[in-house]
Lab assay of single mutants.
Amino acid sequence: SFNTVDEWLEAIKMGQYKESFANAGFTSFDVVSQMMMEDILRVGVTLAGHQKKILNSIQVMRAQMN
Score class of each variant (00 low, 15 high):
25 G>I: 02
21 F>H: 00
37 M>C: 09
2 F>M: 07
65 M>C: 08
10 E>L: 06
23 N>A: 14
16 Q>W: 05
21 F>A: 00
37 M>S: 06
59 Q>E: 13
20 S>W: 06
52 K>Q: 15
63 A>H: 14
58 I>Q: 01
17 Y>W: 04
36 M>K: 15
16 Q>I: 11
6 D>A: 11
54 I>Q: 00
9 L>W: 03
34 Q>H: 10
21 F>G: 00
11 A>D: 11
34 Q>I: 09
8 W>G: 00
20 S>K: 13
22 A>P: 01
15 G>F: 06
52 K>S: 11
31 V>A: 13
27 T>Q: 08
62 R>F: 09
12 I>M: 10
7 E>Q: 10
19 E>A: 14
8 W>Q: 00
37 M>H: 10
27 T>K: 09
66 N>H: 11
30 D>W: 13
7 E>Y: 05
4 T>E: 08
8 W>H: 01
41 L>R: 12
40 I>L: 15
40 I>K: 00
32 V>D: 01
27 T>G: 06
1 S>W: 14
35 M>Y: 00
56 N>Q: 14
49 G>S: 15
3 N>W: 11
60 V>F: 13
50 H>I: 03
56 N>A: 14
9 L>S: 01
20 S>A: 15
41 L>K: 11
45 V>L: 02
61 M>P: 01
25 G>K: 05
34 Q>P: 03
66 N>K: 09
29 F>I: 11
16 Q>P: 04
40 I>C: 05
25 G>W: 03
6 D>I: 05
2 F>G: 06
54 I>C: 02
25 G>Y: 04
51 Q>G: 05
30 D>R: 15
6 D>K: 05
36 M>A: 12
55 L>P: 00
34 Q>R: 11
6 D>Q: 07
50 H>Q: 04
21 F>M: 04
51 Q>N: 04
7 E>L: 07
44 G>K: 03
5 V>G: 00
41 L>H: 08
42 R>T: 09
14 M>T: 01
64 Q>Y: 08
50 H>G: 02
22 A>N: 08
15 G>W: 06
18 K>Q: 06
39 D>E: 05
32 V>K: 00
40 I>G: 00
51 Q>L: 08
29 F>M: 11
58 I>L: 08
10 E>R: 05
26 F>L: 08
61 M>F: 06
49 G>H: 15
35 M>I: 05
2 F>E: 05
26 F>G: 02
20 S>G: 14
40 I>H: 00
42 R>V: 08
5 V>I: 10
59 Q>P: 03
57 S>V: 04
59 Q>G: 09
4 T>H: 06
49 G>V: 14
61 M>C: 05
31 V>P: 04
6 D>F: 10
46 T>C: 07
65 M>W: 06
66 N>Q: 13
22 A>E: 08
4 T>P: 06
1 S>N: 13
14 M>C: 07
8 W>P: 00
55 L>E: 05
43 V>H: 01
36 M>T: 15
56 N>E: 15
28 S>A: 07
13 K>F: 12
62 R>V: 09
46 T>Q: 10
58 I>W: 02
28 S>V: 04
26 F>V: 09
51 Q>W: 05
53 K>T: 15
62 R>C: 06
9 L>H: 00
8 W>N: 00
40 I>M: 09
55 L>H: 06
42 R>C: 07
23 N>G: 08
40 I>W: 02
1 S>F: 14
64 Q>R: 08
47 L>P: 06
43 V>S: 05
57 S>Y: 11
38 E>Q: 10
36 M>R: 15
32 V>T: 03
62 R>E: 05
37 M>V: 10
4 T>W: 07
51 Q>T: 06
32 V>C: 04
49 G>L: 13
23 N>S: 12
34 Q>Y: 09
16 Q>Y: 06
44 G>W: 03
23 N>I: 12
46 T>R: 10
7 E>F: 05
28 S>M: 05
44 G>H: 03
49 G>T: 14
47 L>A: 10
47 L>E: 14
36 M>W: 07
62 R>D: 05
5 V>E: 00
23 N>H: 11
20 S>Q: 14
5 V>P: 04
39 D>A: 04
29 F>H: 03
29 F>Y: 04
18 K>L: 05
41 L>P: 02
43 V>Q: 01
2 F>R: 05
26 F>C: 06
51 Q>R: 10
14 M>G: 02
30 D>M: 12
20 S>H: 13
11 A>E: 11
45 V>C: 04
30 D>S: 12
8 W>M: 02
38 E>W: 08
60 V>E: 15
19 E>L: 13
13 K>V: 07
29 F>A: 03
53 K>D: 09
3 N>P: 08
3 N>S: 13
45 V>A: 03
64 Q>F: 09
29 F>G: 02
6 D>C: 06
12 I>D: 02
40 I>R: 00
66 N>C: 12
32 V>H: 02
56 N>R: 14
50 H>T: 02
4 T>I: 05
49 G>E: 15
55 L>A: 05
3 N>I: 10
7 E>W: 05
9 L>P: 00
37 M>Y: 11
61 M>T: 03
65 M>T: 07
17 Y>G: 01
10 E>Q: 07
26 F>K: 05
39 D>T: 04
38 E>L: 07
63 A>K: 11
23 N>D: 10
9 L>V: 02
24 A>M: 09
40 I>P: 01
54 I>K: 01
60 V>I: 14
4 T>F: 07
66 N>L: 06
52 K>R: 13
5 V>K: 01
26 F>P: 00
36 M>H: 14
44 G>R: 03
10 E>C: 07
49 G>C: 13
62 R>P: 03
42 R>M: 10
43 V>E: 00
16 Q>D: 06
13 K>R: 11
2 F>H: 08
28 S>Q: 06
25 G>R: 04
35 M>A: 02
14 M>E: 01
9 L>R: 00
36 M>D: 15
2 F>L: 08
27 T>W: 07
23 N>Y: 09
38 E>K: 11
37 M>W: 10
5 V>N: 01
40 I>Y: 03
37 M>T: 06
32 V>R: 00
58 I>S: 01
43 V>I: 13
58 I>F: 02
3 N>C: 11
51 Q>C: 07
62 R>S: 07
59 Q>Y: 12
14 M>K: 01
29 F>R: 04
15 G>V: 06
42 R>A: 13
17 Y>S: 01
41 L>V: 14
25 G>H: 05
6 D>V: 06
19 E>C: 09
30 D>L: 13
45 V>S: 01
54 I>H: 00
51 Q>A: 13
38 E>C: 09
7 E>G: 08
29 F>S: 02
57 S>R: 05
60 V>A: 14
33 S>E: 06
21 F>S: 00
57 S>F: 10
52 K>V: 13
47 L>K: 12
60 V>D: 10
1 S>D: 12
27 T>E: 05
15 G>C: 06
59 Q>M: 15
11 A>G: 13
61 M>A: 04
35 M>G: 01
13 K>W: 09
27 T>V: 10
14 M>D: 00
4 T>V: 05
14 M>S: 02
42 R>D: 06
24 A>N: 13
29 F>C: 04
57 S>E: 15
44 G>C: 03
35 M>N: 00
40 I>E: 00
46 T>K: 12
43 V>R: 01
41 L>I: 15
53 K>Y: 15
10 E>G: 06
17 Y>K: 01
37 M>L: 13
33 S>I: 14
15 G>D: 09
29 F>P: 04
6 D>M: 08
9 L>G: 00
36 M>E: 15
55 L>I: 08
5 V>F: 02
3 N>Y: 12
13 K>G: 15
43 V>M: 07
63 A>G: 11
53 K>Q: 13
60 V>C: 14
3 N>F: 10
13 K>M: 14
32 V>M: 03
28 S>G: 07
7 E>N: 07
26 F>A: 05
34 Q>K: 13
46 T>M: 10
43 V>W: 02
1 S>H: 13
62 R>W: 07
52 K>W: 12
50 H>Y: 03
54 I>N: 00
22 A>Y: 13
52 K>G: 06
11 A>R: 09
30 D>Q: 13
15 G>R: 05
50 H>D: 13
62 R>T: 06
10 E>I: 10
33 S>M: 14
1 S>G: 12
65 M>F: 07
32 V>E: 01
63 A>I: 10
34 Q>E: 10
41 L>G: 05
34 Q>G: 10
39 D>C: 03
38 E>N: 08
47 L>D: 15
8 W>E: 00
58 I>K: 01
57 S>Q: 09
26 F>Y: 15
31 V>R: 15
47 L>Y: 11
66 N>S: 11
15 G>I: 05
64 Q>H: 15
37 M>Q: 09
14 M>L: 09
11 A>L: 07
4 T>A: 07
13 K>I: 05
20 S>V: 08
58 I>E: 00
54 I>L: 13
54 I>D: 00
10 E>Y: 07
31 V>H: 09
57 S>L: 08
3 N>E: 13
28 S>N: 12
55 L>R: 04
45 V>T: 02
33 S>R: 11
5 V>H: 01
63 A>Y: 08
35 M>E: 00
5 V>R: 01
2 F>W: 15
46 T>S: 09
52 K>Y: 12
60 V>R: 11
43 V>F: 02
44 G>V: 02
12 I>R: 02
38 E>H: 10
65 M>D: 06
37 M>A: 10
11 A>F: 14
52 K>I: 14
4 T>N: 11
58 I>G: 00
51 Q>F: 05
24 A>C: 09
62 R>Y: 07
64 Q>E: 12
